[in-house]
Design a protein around this nucleic acid. Sequence first.
RNA 1: GCCACCCUAGCUCAGUUGGCAGAGCAACUGAUUCGUAAUCAGUAGGUCGCCGGUUCGACUCCGGCGGGUGGCUCCA
Length: 647
Amino acid sequence: MPEISLEVPGRGIVAAAAGETAREVLERAGVLGDSVAARLNGRSVDLSTRVEADGRLAPVAPASPEGLEVLRHSTAHLMAQAVKRLFPAAQITIGPVIEDGFYYDFSFERPFTPEDLERIEREMQKIVAEDLAVARTVEARDAAVGRFLGMGEKYKAEIIGSIPAGEDVSLYGQGDFVDLCRGPHVPSTGRLGAFKLTHVAGAYWRGDERNEMLQRVYGTAWADRETLEAHLALLEEARKRDHRRLGPALDLFSLHSISPGIPFFHPRGTIVYNQLVAYVRSLYERYGYTEVVTPLIYKTELFKTSGHYDSYRDDMFLLRADEEEYGVKPMNCPGHVHLFAQGKKSYRDLPIRYADFSRLHRFERSGVLSGLTRVRGFSQDDAHVFCTPEQADEEFALFLRMTREVYDAFGFEDVAVAVETRPEKFLGEPALWDDAERTLQEGLRRAGFDYTLSPGDGAFYGPKIAFNFRDALKRSWTLSTIQVDCAMPDRFGIRYVRPDGAEGRPVMLHRAILGSIERFIAILVEHTAGDLPLWLAPEQVRVLSVTDRSAEYGEAVVRRLRAAGLRAELDSRNEKLGFKIRAAEMMKIPAVAVVGDKEASQDMVAPRWRGEGNRPAQALGEFLAEAVTRAAMPGTGEAASGPVGVD
RNA sequence: GCCACCCUAGCUCAGUUGGCAGAGCAACUGAUUCGUAAUCAGUAGGUCGCCGGUUCGACUCCGGCGGGUGGCUCCA
């Protein structure tokens, strides 16, 4: 056998015979350890892969990203094997790795029950104990199709059938089970074990709702028990932070079947809501926006012109009055274009930036509604910019500056930017789209944003940039978006007079920074676990009287705090101090001021800041000054800056 | 919209094979006047999501509808 040489990290060059397995080479190099696969020239391969030529070879540890991918994929196969043993009539389809775990889709005559999941999990553990060897074989495509048809696996045969004819496919077998798979996999089922099946759900075959509904079983898998437990603990933590639980508990909002998907904001939640709007308004003042108030309901004629009637009608609330069809607006843009078209506009008027906090209503399919994150009624910090083509770059840059300022204000750091391009169903000229997509990408590059491309995800009227924020629970949410409109200026025929007296078509941008205020509140509640920043907290200070003797002084303290613009309440209930402290903590009140005989006699309070604990009593004026400073809205007070360089 | 599961007091949850609906917390009343995460006692609170069926009898079994949860498909 010819000698080959392999570069193994930490071991330099290791000599091997061509045809030796990766496992043999790694073992001899003393780096096999508990690896579940190998990396050969940068590609993940099975440990049983034969090395035929010079190259680089490294072990893949179970806890490494590639290792976890292998474990999860192998665990998906393990589950499929268990399902086939328990339910031979079930047909296997696909079973990919997803974030933190895997799923496998089965076609079966009935849905799996939670009890089935437990049985499947036990069967999986049995197969782990059997420690079956996992073996890879290669077969011609048509032979593989025949093999799976022979086993009655018509879905699998269909998948393999869609691979180009004449190609070979790789199969992985373990005991009585075989599956089509690119691999790699762990060498034997005994290497698995730190997994848990989490839930079952329906899923359409090939993701198309016209197809059969399959049974999808989700699971999570990790390198060892400890990391599995840690992951389950994180899920538990997420459950505790869930805004649908915290929101009502903190008396912020509630949902009721009387209006599915449209939230009721309670007085406390309304304070948060209005503070966010006030914050955005303060930015608008500096960034040169003008606010408008526009109709909620329009004759559908408007939506026919804008294109919404054709592209978006199924998602709209339509109504009939006076023999006329009306639509509740799902977006502000058609109204704003209409508004722009009123009166003659000159280049001297541009850019025009219409901001609108109007409520929007979208008839979302019932199955997609969820808390405040997916609703049927909401409002956005929405605005539409109309400018000359020459101004478009600067307008885009301005938006990016504003976005950055807002994210800094909230301390949002983990933000990924995606450029979403022309979808299949679109309006306007493809050339316009290409231009717009290029403009967006160049602007991002100039502003120093990294981004990824998300082909086909744009809005029907133009390409879009989405700012996706990852919250404390590692979930991703679209907050800000900006879209170049390639359709509506033409459809509405809006114009402006250029310096040379000719008429031009203005460029239209759609943009939002917080996005939906409802969704933003949900994200903020979960990100902060309900500990909202002081400027947003519905009740900023709670004054606690120790006994009835200090209640009157407590009232005076509350009056002083309120006069200084703070949101303060008095708890003078006939309860012990410990009880009131607990109540304030559970409502996550940021600051507590205890007043007893001592404080009352000296014009003092004993502060207790949430997360910081008790402080010695201090003069009321001192406490008040600190609270006012801490409660400042971002971009105001000391740090306030003047107008941003526009207009 | 599709698949599965869930819906009992304001909240969190018990409720045996179909036989008079329960607890803790919250609320209310009284006592207590108390110093940093729950003082004690008492009172009230329910068309068991809604409608229909089976049954001598339904929170419990069956069907339909509504809402929610997890997914799928769609999306701020």
